[in-house]
């Protein structure tokens, strides 16, 4: 009885105190804009992210400055920064929660809460491919974003507006701490 009590005293707090963290090691975030005359990809490698796991759930936050997206043309990037209200809202943040055992799956579905351009939008059950190698996890997928979700007026070229879709390809490598 004493042994059981001692085990409970030591193991139960240990379970609740168990906390692991994930840090974002590498990332490539790329938005794609489509226009009848041109296709544009803006890429950023400047995202930072962290995940904290507790009681079987992991909460993640990924953030990237809007101005770090590079489409190969500084004029276009500044224009994108303007239409996305990047001066007023300089960060894009993505929050999501996953069960800790999601690491055993090859495809995970996450509800993403995206804050961008002064708006908060939730994308439900976005699929991501997951590859685990040692203490690293590679997560890749596409966020099916639309400009109208964030009240962004599609920019135009020669009087023709771009498409409303602005899918964001996400390729990240996480490291368990």
């Amino acid at each position: 009885m004493k042994t059981k009590l001692a085990l409970m005293l030591f193991t139960v707090p240990a379970l609740f105190a168990a906390e692991s963290q994930w840090m974002l090691d590498q990332s490539t975030l790329a938005y794609h804009i489509s226009h009848p005359l041109h296709q544009v990809d803006g890429v950023s490698h400047a995202a930072r992210g962290k995940g904290v796991c507790n009681a079987g759930e992991c909460d993640f936050l990924v953030a990237v400055p809007v101005k770090t997206f590079n489409s190969g043309d500084s004029n276009r990037d500044l224009h994108m920064l303007q239409v996305a209200r990047g001066g007023e809202f300089p960060m894009v943040t993505v929050r999501f929660r996953l069960p800790e055992n999601a690491a055993s799956q090859t495809t995970i579905h996450a509800d993403l809460e995206v804050q961008f351009a002064g708006q908060t939008v939730t994308y439900k059950q976005v699929p991501f491919e997951l590859t685990i190698q040692g203490n690293q996890a590679r997560v890749a997928g596409t966020i099916p974003a639309k400009m109208s979700d964030f009240k962004i007026e599609p920019p135009s070229l020669l009087g023709i507006a771009t498409k409303n879709d602005i899918p964001v390809r996400v390729e990240t490598t996480w490291r368990r701490m």
């Binding site: 904290v52 936050l61 500044l78 239409v83």
Partner: peptide, 29 residues
Amino acid sequence: GELSLGDLGFTPQQTTGSAQEQARLNKRS
């Protein structure tokens, strides 16, 4: 209890929005 931008190492200068900066971008465009 939630993660914050500070937890990711971003400084307030990086995360602070500025109406003046947006106005400059708007005027430029």
